[in-house]
Design a protein around this nucleic acid. Structure first.
Lengths: 208, 208, 208, 208
DNA sequence: CATGAATGAGTCTTCATTCAT
DNA sequence: GATGAATGAAGACTCATTCAT
């Protein structure tokens, strides 16, 4: 195979292996995934994979690390750029089906849900570095709007979770029923309806 | 250990083993769970477990089969007994935190999310026998109310999913952060707020 | 294969495995010896071996533990029973070729010399439990004789080592040249001459 | 790293690698020693090592070849130069502790004892080229002295082995207990006493 | 019925060796 | 000549499954 000689080429290769690992972990779960299959999936030998990761566990951690971050940034940008709560809700409910369909986030979610219990430290790190940040962004927007009396809302931190819940739901749904044709439903319509209901629930309808 | 002689005693024992298996599958995942540990957890030997289940896979199927059903029945009863949509929402948002805290449902969810992808048939069977029925119950109530013009709602089938989403969310949350003290939030308040927002979103407020 | 069900049968089996391990470690060295070969040598599977020893390293320790002790006892008895220094020297130089030819001691010596550097704790334990005791027995006899002015000798502890040296020499020789026909020499004559020279060196000739 | 262009430079480098290999084989044993570690120990890459030796086995043979010879020459010189048996004994018992402490001989001994059984040809070659010559030198001196009735001795070939035995003993001791502080004893006193006892045993005392 | 000893297929990991750069 | 990335054979160890007791 091609040889990665420069540091950049090696970084790229790490990413390639991590991507392959995500797919295998997603399909088989951490314990059932085979290092050899991960390597072969991108045309390398088992041994090459061990040049980049010391162990299967290290690979798992790298996978979570690698693919969670970029998506947080995307959400933060959306929240920061959008005007008010209504705009944020619109942006998020528009972005959500795209992210869900794109595939990586549901895969990470599946891997974390399925295997993180065996790696509590990974789960906690993920919460701190990804989930808390996402929730903080949304909670911040809601708090500001509440202070300005724009919306009628209870505890912003809980509302933030209620906003996010359908994303988790659809990610989980996708994970479980990807190959089950009868199970599919219209993601766009689902999130659009979520947006409408949220705005009503926040009594934002007029503003929307 | 004790011997199970009557057919009833044998059925009981199957249930006991399945319960132990659920716990082990939940904690370690299907692949990493050991048959011996499952048996020992309830005071039996590995060999005894094989008297009741032909293989680890058969045990997995039995676990899903065994513990999903009772909860469907509970929900169906609630939906059937409650008066209108508002009452159903109240009943469900009151029941939800209890079920989440009780533990079995999040455990099954975790096992299914984590391991069902390796058993597509199990996942599909579960959807048909459990999820579809739950969603059907809720969808039915919403449809009737919509027909009676009690509520303002889009597609009832999607709304049903939006009602259920926070349950999945909190089940997943519990799975991932059970041992992460900083992560806990108030489940009762969460579902209470969910109920309030739903009723507003359905323009049911006055009726509630 | 036969099953070891009683604790005694299991102890026996441990010994059987340890014996097989000694042979393999002797022939190939610790690192090159294969667990499967050790097990097969006595008609068992790899897995069975792991029922009795947690790891290759644990097996190594058991081997040293198991086969060193009995021989210490033999020597101690000889030293305790024999009358004076001359008798002890006679007894030891008569016993030595038998022990060397019997095979187990040279094998353990080889295993320890070859592999103990990788297991310093094992080496130290062996010194304390085996070598020090053997040397102490001999040193004790020499000291008593010196105090009684029976022999003319320097430091008894060093003399004890000089008495033992040809045993180590011939063990090492046997290890290295077992299959080298040209290398053989007459062990009995060798130790007999050692005895004669020792008695002269101690000025015990008259007494002998 | 530096490049070796001339044939002499290449021979030097072979020696450098062989020295590193001796150290690694000594510390870890043949099977557990890593080619990369051997190369790195002298600042080269794995690949460079393979430019000089075709395989690990070839390297092993070179190690034995390389470091045994010089010491034989030293001993032969001593034996040839010294006047009579007494002088040879004095010279050898003075030289012995120096050689033992210097380290290379015990290391080779350890490597041979530990790993030669897996390489019978190497062991035999070593005996022929090193051990037999050393023993022959000593045996020759003893024979001459016996013929001249200078000493009272049995079989000279066996006596030669008895002279050498404490050297093997102390080499083995050093190998096994190098890092075991409680185990050290005074090498100079040990060999001095060996010399005294030998001369008495040969009835050379007067002459010494 | 229940037990746990025995089996052997399966997987992680290491490392001698090769070879593109 | 020198390097170190890539390969794949080999071996320790695990555990689902079987079966003698």
């Amino acid at each position: 195979m091609q040889r990665a000689r420069t540091p950049e080429a090696k970084d790229d290769r790490r990413g390639v292996f991590a991507g392959a690992a995500l797919d295998e972990f997603y399909e088989k779960g951490f314990a059932a995934a085979r290092m050899e299959d991960i390597a072969r999936r991108v045309g390398f030998s088992k041994g090459a994979l061990y040049l980049y990761f010391d162990s299967k566990e290290a690979l798992f951690e790298a996978v979570v690390e690698n693919f969670a971050m970029p998506n947080v940034a995307r959400l933060e940008t959306v929240a920061a750029t959008a005007g008010g709560v209504g705009a944020v809700i619109d942006a998020m409910t528009t972005l959500a089906p795209v992210i869900i369909r794109e595939g990586r986030i549901p895969k990470i979610a599946k891997v974390l849900i399925g295997d993180a219990p065996a790696f509590p430290a990974v789960a906690t790190a993920y919460r701190q570095k990804v989930i808390d940040r996402v929730l903080a962004v949304i909670t911040g927007v809601l708090k500001k709007a509440k202070a300005a009396s724009e919306i009628d809302i209870g505890e912003p931190a809980l509302a933030a979770r209620l906003i996010v819940a359908p994303m988790i739901f659809s990610a989980v749904w996708r994970i479980m029923f990807e190959h089950d044709d009868e199970a599919h439903f219209d993601l766009d319509a689902f999130f659009s309806q979520h947006g409408i209901m949220l705005k009503r629930a926040f009594k934002l309808e007029a503003a929307a």
